[in-house]
Design a binder for these strands. Sequence first.
RNA 1: GCUGAGGUAGCCUAGCCCGGAAAGGCGCCAGCCUUGAAAGCUGGUGGCGGCGACGCCUCGGGAGUUCAAAUCUCCCCCUCAGCGCCA
Length: 431
Amino acid sequence: MIDIELVRSQGETVEANLRRRQDPEVLRLFEEVRDADREWRSVRGDADAIRKRRNELSRQIGEARRAGAPPADLDAEAKEISSRLESLAGREAELLRARDAALRRLPNLLAESVPFGKDDAENVTVASWGTPDRTVGGRRSHADLLEGLGMAEFDRGRRAAGAGFYYLTGPIVLLDLALQRFALDLLVERGFTPVAPPYMLRREPYEGVTDLADFENVMYRIADEDLYLIATSEHPLAALRMGEILDDAELPIRLAGVSPCFRKEIGGHGVDQKGVFRVHQFQKVEQFVFCRPDESEAIHEELRANAEEVFRRLEVPYRVVNVCTGDLGTIAAKKYDIEAWFPRQQAYREVVSCSNCTDYQARRLGIRMGKAGKPGKSVPHTLNSTAIATSRGLAVILEQYQRPDGGLDVPRVLRPYLGGRATIERPPRGG
RNA sequence: GCUGAGGUAGCCUAGCCCGGAAAGGCGCCAGCCUUGAAAGCUGGUGGCGGCGACGCCUCGGGAGUUCAAAUCUCCCCCUCAGCGCCA
């Protein structure tokens, strides 16, 4: 959430920034925040004056009572003033509620380096690595390949859990774990602390880390409980320090989350719909950082470099796009997507999302900076980035490393995690 | 799930039974003292509104009673302990 002080003192700048998102609803919300805040402050003043009088009377009545009987006129005025306050206080509370509701729905301010654009077609490619293989050459979809190897159960997954769920079986499970372990080791090497977070969160922290629309669309709720399955470990990692004061000296805090991710809304598919590209459940190793505001820009680049390194070591061609103003989500001030080359689809598809959330998430979670004994008012920044999501990471490897005979070469960097194994073969007797 | 105890400012705690300006300690900041530091002493140290004098609010959250609620009543949330169940 944006700092209300900023809305007051730099209203024009904030509005101009929000305008870049090209969403009329956002500007309407901004007006609502500003109007409600202005009126709240005015009503607040009136109500405070009445409260002051009430407190005076209350004090006098108390003193009079201790001395003898309370004077009837004081009592009458106190009663009258209380009822007058009631409606005003109601209005005051309502305005504050309206202001904060609108403020919480207002998206983050955009970083200056975010390119202006309408939608994902106008995202700007800022880097690329590797040479995309432009020949389709009888490549199979990752789902076909998996089924050919007898290492995935899509139909049975649907029968048991519904569309969007699947079973992986056999050596591919080890490959999946190897991918996670490889990414995790890389992050640990670079100073991250591995974290196995809770896979469910209560509503309150959840509202701090995500926006309300997402909340309704993507979250699985546990029936009769105030619990939601996490959509990414970013969320429990952010909530790890909710309500706390972070000591400047401990920043930056680099965390590597490992968890399954659960998402209700999986959207449309496109080519090769079957498989693990868009699913309700997948594994992810995630980078997450709490840091000082002045260092978040540099750390954003660091997270991006780490994510790029994952795909370089896997020898998977990719490009990096700077997500444009019209395509950026609510929480992020700036976002890079890494899109890996899927040779069967002959397309770059998103495999990493790397965001600088500045102070937006931290403010919603009530996280501040300072020292024990001397809490500050400033708010740290949070950043997050995929290291590897093993649905898509797996899919791209299956597309790229498949062999014409239906087997799979194991990416060099993963072999140590598979006991040196270099290939995954079709089982001797076909399924 | 049952029973009990709790939730008070950055932290720890008192106040609650019996309603009437949130006491104290730690930490932190400043001053005094000191060659410097520590100790000691003095003062300050929540949020919001107001240009300001100042005022209002704040005791897990909400509702109620009352002139007045940390305190009384009701509902809800969370934490801890014991018991139960359990990988």
